[in-house]
């Protein structure tokens, strides 16, 4: 029905200007539900910002690394 679930990485910060922190991962069938799930699952802080990104969209910048983000 929905195809395979994708892994999303979740990033957030408590105050504007703080460094963005990786706070966890989640599974979702698409970005729309990933947004919803992230905000609900990682609600332990009063975040000022939160982003989600599909893991397979994140690429390494290290010159000796290639391929997708490892789990």
């Amino acid at each position: 029905m929905a195809g395979p679930e994708r892994v999303f990485e979740v990033f957030a910060r408590i105050a504007p200007g703080d460094p963005m922190s990786h706070i966890g991962t989640l599974n979702a069938p698409g970005i729309e539900l990933a947004r919803v799930y992230a905000w609900r699952i990682y609600d332990e802080e009063d975040w000022s910002d939160m982003w989600v990104a599909p893991r397979d969209a994140i690429v390494s910048a290290h010159p000796d690394q290639d391929g997708p983000l490892p789990a």
Partner: peptide, 22 residues
């Protein structure tokens, strides 16, 4: 607002493909 986003996400997802779920 979150409830609506959750509903819309699921309806669009299930509607995207013909089959028993839809």
């Amino acid at each position: 607002r979150f409830h609506a986003e959750h509903a819309e996400g699921w309806v669009r997802l299930v509607e995207s493909e013909a089959g028993p779920a839809r």
